[in-house]
Simulated scan of single mutants.
Amino acid sequence: MDTKILVLFYGYGSIVELAKEIAKGAEEEGAETRIRKVRETLYPDLIEKFHVPLDSTKDIQEVNLEDLKWADGLAIGSPTRYGNMAGGMKTFLDTTAPLWRSGDLYGKPVTFFTEASTIHGGHETTILTMTTYAFHFGMIIVPLGYAIPEISSTNTGGSPYGSSHLSSKKDLDENEIKIARFQGKRIAQVARKLKGS
């Protein structure tokens, strides 16, 4: 049986690049992947004021609840907003009550990723804010720990909590890519074991 991994994100720029690297890692492990985005919830005047690059994700489909049901494992990512997940991600997660009632996500593994513009900008707290949903759904949280040396040697992005990016740098660096790929492989491995294939 094929292992199916959903990589779900809100945002633009480096969070999208992290999502793609996580998906590549899962695919290297033999998983089938879907990358999906969360709908933009900013007011139109703020989209214009902040120059939100909506076109940069136009080729990525918006997520729906069927995508979550389809997946054997999930990777969920959001940029930090004052140490918390972005409102767009929270708005989407708040719509998943039907899956909570049906138990469709119970026992599925999930891992988290983020980006922030400063080293102490809330990478770890943002991941922690997303994990509360996993507790309520009875999901299995899959952290990275210190299984690869890049987590101990990076001063930009990535921790035992999950992959991340220091977005004051434009591009993902080598360590960030390795950590994201490892995260994709790890969620695919855990999902496969739990699925029993």
Rank of each mutant, 00 (worst) to 15 (best):
I177S: 02
S56W: 02
R36N: 09
T156N: 14
H123D: 02
P109C: 11
H51E: 15
F112D: 02
V190C: 09
K4V: 04
A180L: 06
T156A: 13
T118M: 12
A23Y: 08
Y12A: 04
S159F: 01
L105V: 11
L128D: 06
I47K: 14
I148A: 09
I127E: 04
K170T: 13
F50D: 10
S14P: 00
P79Y: 08
D72Y: 11
D104Y: 09
V52N: 04
D173G: 15
K169T: 12
E27S: 06
G77P: 12
S153E: 13
S167W: 05
L54H: 00
L144H: 03
L8H: 01
I35H: 01
A116L: 03
G25D: 00
I5P: 08
E29V: 02
H123V: 05
K195T: 10
T80D: 01
S168Y: 03
A31W: 00
I177Y: 08
A116E: 03
A116S: 14
K69E: 13
T80N: 07
G30I: 07
N64Q: 13
I127F: 02
E176N: 04
L46V: 12
P143T: 15
I60L: 14
G103E: 11
S153A: 14
L74E: 01
S167I: 07
A191N: 08
A75K: 08
A134P: 07
A147F: 10
D94Q: 10
K49T: 09
Y161N: 05
P143L: 04
F92A: 11
G122N: 12
V7S: 09
L194G: 15
K108W: 04
D45N: 09
F9P: 04
L6C: 07
E66D: 15
K58S: 15
K20E: 14
R101V: 12
M130N: 01
V38I: 13
V38Y: 03
L68N: 02
G13N: 12
F112V: 00
A134W: 01
Y10R: 08
S168C: 14
A147S: 12
K169P: 00
R34F: 05
L105P: 08
T41Q: 08
K37H: 06
P79W: 14
T118C: 04
S197A: 15
M139P: 01
P79L: 12
E29I: 00
E66F: 07
I22H: 01
E21F: 03
M85Q: 09
G184D: 01
S56V: 09
G138T: 06
I148M: 13
K90A: 09
S168K: 13
S14W: 01
E66R: 12
T118I: 13
K24A: 13
V7Y: 12
I187W: 03
A188F: 09
P53L: 04
T111K: 02
A31G: 01
E62G: 07
L105N: 04
S164K: 11
F9E: 10
E176C: 07
K108L: 05
T126P: 03
R181D: 10
S14R: 13
A75S: 14
H136T: 05
H123W: 01
A86T: 08
I76M: 03
E62S: 06
K69P: 00
S117V: 08
N64L: 03
T80A: 12
I177P: 02
K4Y: 05
G83N: 11
S56F: 00
T33N: 03
A191R: 08
T57V: 15
I151S: 06
E28R: 05
A86Q: 05
